[in-house]
């Protein structure tokens, strides 16, 4: 998906079409090939453009990968949508953003990063450099995906990387994607934070958290009279989220509640709800111009 977007972006801005296809052998280093110590073969930066590679391929790559949402304007300004039932259970979740920043590098033994096991993932604990940050997880090794602490072909990641005979090795790092279990946990965590927010209020009759601000996103929450919470994560500068939340409530009433096969408080699996929600997000992204008073 990101590649398609990138291609169309490249064409719109009048970039030559010759750049649209990157040969596969350039992008992935062959594992057997001897490499000098930690010279990056290639760095793929899909969101952040803080990539410091002086590789000649860099310009080549950036042409057809979408940049940071902050930089490309209205593209992908709404990150995700959560629907939480009145008991704090997650009944619907949608991620609506392009892949996050990922970096692939080739390393020789010994590895100059400290890795550790955290929440069933192998993450960088120390040795942040270039675009590999502390907290990033190992996503793939030599092009083979990593699930938790094991690679797709069943090797344990830390053990594999501790063995000098496996080097040089090419590792892809990036922000770990949330698993569905974690999303469930975060939804119920927000449910409690929402309640504590109203308990600690210095004013009478306060609602729970309606908007939560951070430097990278804003979380907007709308609780209906029946206790269902609609949560939207968006760019801090995205306007018109209030009306989007009302719109999502409307879509929920029309396409989930009116579906004869939907039972209350249970996960929403309705095709029409999906379609209309995606449509509403796109409309909101186009219509809601970036403004300071969002």
């Amino acid at each position: 998906m990101s590649d398609e977007k990138g291609k169309s972006l490249g064409r719109e801005s009048g970039k030559p079409r010759a750049f649209t296809a990157l040969p596969e052998h350039v992008a992935t280093p062959r594992p057997g090939q001897p490499e000098r110590n930690t010279i990056p073969i290639i760095q793929r930066s899909k969101i952040g453009n803080n990539c410091l590679s002086h590789n000649a391929l860099r310009c080549h790559i950036e042409l057809h990968l979408p940049k940071c949402p902050e930089l490309t304007g209205a593209d992908m300004a709404i990150f995700s949508v959560y629907v939480v039932n009145k008991a704090g259970g997650l009944i619907y979740q949608l991620d609506h953003y392009a892949p996050r920043s990922e970096t692939e590098k080739t390393f020789s033994f010994p590895l100059d990063l400290v890795l550790k096991l955290h929440d069933e993932r192998v993450v960088v604990a120390f040795g942040q450099r270039d675009s590999i940050r502390v907290g990033h997880a190992v996503l793939s090794i030599n092009g083979i995906d990593v699930n938790g602490k094991y690679t797709a072909d069943g090797k344990e990641v830390l053990e594999y990387l501790g063995n000098p005979t496996n080097y040089p090795v090419s590792i892809r790092f990036g922000r770990p994607r949330l698993s569905s279990n974690e999303k469930l946990m975060l939804a119920s965590m927000f449910h409690s934070l929402f309640a504590i927010g109203s308990q600690l209020s210095p004013e009478l009759g306060s609602s729970g958290i309606e908007m939560l601000e951070t430097d990278t996103f804003k979380l907007h929450c709308f609780q209906t009279l029946t206790g269902i919470k609609f949560v939207v994560l968006a760019d801090p500068r995205q306007a018109g989220i209030e009306s989007l939340l009302r719109k999502i409530y409307e879509i929920y009433s029309d396409f989930a509640l009116k579906n004869p096969f939907y039972s209350l408080e249970m996960p929403i699996r309705c095709e029409l709800f999906d379609q209309n929600l995606k449509l509403a997000l796109e409309v909101a992204e186009k219509a809601g111009p970036f403004g300071p008073g969002s």
């Binding site: 969101i47 952040g48 940071c68 990150f79 995700s80 953003y97 996050r100 920043s101 940050r133 907290g135 922000r175 949330l178 974690e182 975060l186 965590m189 927000f190 934070l193 927010g197 109203s198 209020s201 210095p202 004013e203 009478l204 009759g205 306060s206 609602s207 729970g208 958290i209 309606e210 908007m211 939560l212 601000e213 951070t214 430097d215 990278t216 996103f217 979380l219 994560l233």
Partner: peptide, 23 residues
């Protein structure tokens, strides 16, 4: 910890503020 996990990109300052209907 909630904000750190939810963020789609790497954070710098992290959590800044929240608001309810009254404060």
């Amino acid at each position: 910890s909630f904000v750190g996990k939810m963020s789609p990109v790497d954070m710098k300052d992290g959590f800044l503020a929240f608001q309810t209907s009254k404060y």
